[in-house]
Every structure is written in C-alpha cells, then in structure tokens.
Amino acid sequence: MRNKILLVDHAGQPREDRVSKALVALGHDIEWCCPVKGDLLPDDFDSYRAAIVYGGMECANDPLPHLDLETDWIARWVRSTKPYLGICLGGQLLAKALGGKVYRHAQAKKEIGFYQVKRSQTLEQSEPGLFHDCLGELPEFLFQWHEDGFELPGGACNLAGSELFPSQAFVCRGEGVLENKVIGLQFHPEVTREIATVWLDTFPAALEASGAQSRDEIEQGFLKYDPAVDRWAKDFLAHWLG
C-alpha cells in the first residue's frame, strides 16, 4: 500500500502518459480516480504514498460540483502531510485550495506549444537550494496547453515562470505542509508527442487562439525539446517520491 500513487484524472479515459508510466517503472502501484465520472475521492489517505492531480478542460473557477469537491479534498490532502503534485488544472486547484487565485490572461492569450520557462531569479538569489531540491534541472522549454494561470497562495514560493504567465511552478511551505513535496505546475510534463497529436486532432481550432503556436511549431518542438523533458520528468518523479 505504501507505494500506491493516486492519480486524479478529468477525462475518464485510459491513458498512457509519461508520468504514470514512469511511476510504474519506478516500482509504484497506481490507482486512477475520475470524479467527473462519479469516482469518489478516497478518505483513507494512509493507503496512498502520494497524489497527482492532472489537467482537464475545466477552469478551476467553474462552478462544477466535482471541482468543488476536489478543491476541498486537496486542502485536506495537503494538511495530511502527504506529497501532492498538481499538473495544469491540478496546479490551479492546489493554488485555489490554499487561498490563491486562478485567472485568465489580461489579453486573453493562451500558451499552446513549447514555451521558454525560466526559474525565479528572486528565489535563486534568496534560497539557492530550494529550486534544485524541488524541481532539479528544469528544461528551458516545456509543453503547455492552457489559458488560465494561478497566483500563489500564502506561504508558497514561485519556482519558475514564462513571459505570459509569471507563475509556472510553485512549492507550498508552512505549518502542516510536507516540506518541498507539495508542488503545482502549469506546464504538462506528462504529455508525450502521441498524446499531443490526439489533442491537436481533436481541438484544431485551439491553435487559432492568440499566443498559440502552429502545429508545425509544436511538432518541431517535440523533436527538439521533448527528449530533455522526458529525462527531467523521470528524475523529478524519483526525487519527489524519494
């Protein structure tokens, strides 16, 4: 039981993403849960080593019953001093659960494709060990697909940002929070080229949004940047669960 990782999904369909495959390769059991399809989030936190909440089509501010339940559940999970990783919507829900804000870009811009992400210079200067302890050597270009961003909850440290969204990764700190193990990400380390192809085929109109890259740019981005993301994601997960 101690190696079981809870994976909270918002699509309700089988997936072979990079993160879940890496967890299995590391020797962990995984259990999927999809609240939007009626799955109940567990109350027995001791049965799980950690939780990862994935992205989704929803906005964290949408008045949807399953998101309200998730937000409350995430706050309780964090207070139980268990590791938590939020990816895109999962990161936004973490910020909201702990008192932060989720917002749309002021010029209605979206990040769809590979964008440069830089670590926080302020954090690097004030606490040089924290960034590496949390994320390791983060690749410079990361795959994104979102129109919302998050403002940090109280006590959180910004780890990295992009030109359009200054908070791309944060770690929560403070009383009742497991040190350096409660992390929200805006980018998508779990998305492989195969998953991105499905998204692009399903939602081609998304690339018409302001700020989005072209399909050719995205495909070239996977060729150029994804090998580094793949290496980093596996190292990060091993360290996060270590």
Rank of each mutant, 00 (worst) to 15 (best):
I87F: 04
K109E: 05
D133T: 13
I74R: 00
S120M: 09
K110V: 13
G91A: 08
L98P: 10
T81V: 14
L69Y: 01
K118Q: 13
S80F: 07
R119K: 12
L94N: 07
L67K: 05
I74A: 03
I87E: 10
A108H: 11
K110A: 11
G113Q: 10
E111L: 10
R79F: 01
R79T: 09
A97Y: 04
R76K: 13
D133Q: 13
P83K: 13
K101P: 00
Y84P: 08
I112N: 09
C88T: 07
K118C: 09
H105P: 06
D62A: 10
K118W: 01
H132Q: 15
L93G: 01
P65L: 07
A95H: 06
Y84I: 05
R119F: 01
R119A: 06
F114E: 15
H132E: 09
K82D: 13
F131H: 13
T81N: 14
I112R: 05
E70P: 03
H66F: 08
R104C: 06
F114M: 13
I74F: 01
R79E: 12
P65Y: 02
V102C: 08
Q116S: 11
S126Y: 02
E111H: 08
I74N: 02
G90Q: 07
G86I: 07
A108C: 03
N61E: 06
A60L: 02
A75M: 05
S120A: 12
C59S: 09
R104I: 03
L130I: 12
L98S: 09
H66Q: 06
L67M: 05
T81R: 15
T122R: 14
N61S: 06
W73M: 03
K96V: 05
Q125L: 14
